[in-house]
Simulated assay, not measured.
Amino acid sequence: MSGFEFVKKHNEGFVKEAGVVQKTRNSSTWRFILADKRAIFAISVLVILSVASLLAFLTPYDQNALSIQDKLLPPSGSHWFGTDDHGRDYFTRVLYGGRISIAVGVLSMIIAIVVGTLAGTISGYFGGVIDNLMMRFLDIFMSIPSFFLLMILNAYLKPGIGNIIVIIGLLSWMDVARIVRAETLTLKGREFVMYAQSSGAGFMRIILKHIIPNAIPSIVVAASLNVAGAILTESALSFLGLGVQQPNASWGSMLNNAQGYMGDATYLAIFPGLLILLTILSFNILGDVFRKAMAR
């Protein structure tokens, strides 16, 4: 066996060993997560809310059907969450509102994860001037109060769920980029990445095949925290009247509408507020559990 063949075989062994170690680590991480009661609670809450929101069409009421004679009815057997100031079934409105709130959180998170992951891996992989320029751009971007910028952009653009998703996603990728950059700086010094470089693999192949798959645990933590922040941001926007517009509803817009009835119909604020709390708490718990699982 020639010296070159020996080195090649040795490096291929590093790549295979790294893959086995990563699979074992991922399996151990998931076992740790599923053994945590808090994680089970959070996953259960999110699954129940997501499924209930998707099946909102099964309720016997139309979310936008007005019934003035039934306005502000308290919770009962026929209206589980009561009715709002237009006589609409509040349980149905809450489910459809959850569909929008969760969709905004998840879709804007996907945008933030894609942009942040690409920016972080490119910055960390190339280093040098590219890294310095991207990090300074990121610092400038992070110094701008994103919520106020989001309010300004949303006020000037045509109101719509699509615009809200894109704006939130494009204003929340910076933390993801920092996390992924740190992971990339660590991974690019590993043997399997160095072997891929010496074998002539292109940088995109190395990033997509070796770096991003090994950075997935960190990306998952960032995603869980990001989706919670996105839901909270959408709720705040809708509460201020700059988010989801009537007749559609989100939990934030329902809280906004409930302000005028706090004395007569407190339940109008309790139900959407409680669901926002449970959803954000669940995502934050998952993020904390993922972080602890990775730190073992």
Rank of each mutant, 00 (worst) to 15 (best):
V106K: 02
M142N: 07
N132Q: 13
V106H: 02
F126W: 15
V94M: 13
I100T: 08
G124I: 07
T92H: 08
L149K: 11
Y96W: 11
S101Y: 10
I122H: 11
L149Q: 12
I110Q: 07
T121Y: 10
M151Q: 07
I130V: 12
K158R: 14
I113S: 00
G128D: 13
F126N: 14
L133C: 10
M135K: 01
A155F: 00
S143A: 14
I102K: 12
V114S: 05
I111F: 01
K158H: 15
I110D: 02
R136Q: 04
G124F: 07
G124K: 09
S123T: 07
L107S: 03
L133E: 03
L157P: 02
F147E: 04
I130G: 09
L118D: 07
T117L: 05
Y90E: 10
M109L: 03
I152W: 11
L95Q: 09
V129N: 15
D139E: 14
G105P: 04
I113F: 06
I130P: 11
V94D: 15
F91R: 11
L149S: 13
M134I: 01
S108E: 02
Y125S: 05
L150K: 09
F148P: 05
I130A: 14
A112I: 00
S101E: 08
L157V: 05
D89A: 02
G97M: 03
L118H: 12
L149Y: 11
N154S: 11
F141W: 04
F137E: 11
S101D: 07
N132S: 13
F148W: 10
R99S: 14
T117Q: 02
M134R: 07
V104I: 10
R93W: 01
M135D: 00
N154W: 10
F147S: 03
V114W: 08
I130W: 14
G124L: 08
L153H: 06
G127F: 09
G98Y: 00
I144T: 08
K158N: 14
A103D: 10
I113E: 01
